[in-house]
Computed example of a mutant assay.
Amino acid sequence: MTETDVWVFHGAGSRFTSGVFTSRPQAEEFISQYQLSGILTKYPLGISAYDWAQQQGIFQPTKPEQYSTGFIQRFTSASQEHYHYEDGKCE
C-alpha cells in the first residue's frame, strides 16, 4: 500500500461504508473488535475505481452503457485487493 491508498470496510448487507482506514491491520482491529462480517477493499485516493481500473489496463469500456452514470457510480473491480470477513475473521 502507498500513502495514496486507504482500506474501506463495507458491512454485509450495507449500502454505505462503515469505516475507512489507513492500514489493513487498523481495519482488521475494528472488524475483529466488533466481530463484523463484510468486505475490506483497498482503494486509491483521488481517483475513482472506474478510472483506476482503466489506467491499470484492467477494464476498458466497450459498450455504450459502460459510459453511463449508473454504471460508473456502481463500478467496482475484483482486481482491487480485497478480503472477506465473517464474524470478525478473514475467510
Rank of each mutant, 00 (worst) to 15 (best):
M1W: 12
T2Y: 13
T2C: 08
E3W: 05
E3A: 09
E3D: 15
T4L: 13
D5M: 09
W7Y: 13
W7H: 01
V8N: 03
V8Q: 09
V8A: 08
V8W: 03
F9A: 03
F9W: 06
H10Y: 14
G11W: 00
S14G: 10
F16R: 14
T17E: 14
T17P: 00
T17G: 00
G19P: 08
V20R: 15
V20P: 03
F21P: 05
F21K: 04
F21N: 08
T22G: 07
S23A: 15
S23Q: 07
R24E: 13
R24F: 09
P25I: 11
Q26V: 04
E28C: 12
E28F: 02
E29Y: 08
F30Q: 13
I31K: 01
S32Q: 14
S32H: 11
Y34H: 13
Y34I: 03
Q35W: 00
Q35Y: 05
L36Y: 09
S37E: 05
G38D: 07
G38I: 10
I39E: 10
I39D: 05
L40S: 07
K42H: 09
Y43I: 01
Y43N: 08
P44M: 07
L45Y: 01
L45I: 07
L45A: 02
G46D: 02
G46A: 06
I47R: 07
I47F: 05
S48E: 10
S48K: 07
A49R: 03
Y50Q: 06
D51C: 03
D51Y: 02
W52D: 15
W52K: 11
A53M: 02
A53R: 00
Q54A: 01
Q54K: 08
Q54V: 05
I58A: 04
I58R: 02
F59G: 06
F59W: 09
F59C: 09
F59H: 08
F59Q: 09
Q60T: 14
Q60D: 01
Q60S: 11
P61R: 06
T62P: 00
T62W: 05
T62K: 15
T62N: 11
T62Y: 01
T62M: 10
P64V: 02
P64R: 08
E65C: 02
E65D: 13
S68M: 08
S68H: 11
F71C: 04
F71A: 04
F71W: 10
F71L: 07
I72D: 01
I72P: 01
R74N: 15
F75A: 09
F75H: 09
T76S: 14
T76D: 11
S77F: 03
S77Y: 04
S77R: 03
S77W: 05
S79R: 10
E81M: 10
E81T: 11
E81P: 10
H82M: 10
H82N: 15
Y83M: 04
H84N: 06
Y85W: 02
Y85G: 04
Y85K: 01
E86T: 15
E86M: 11
G88M: 04
K89N: 09
K89Q: 15
K89L: 14
C90Y: 01
C90K: 15
E91Q: 10
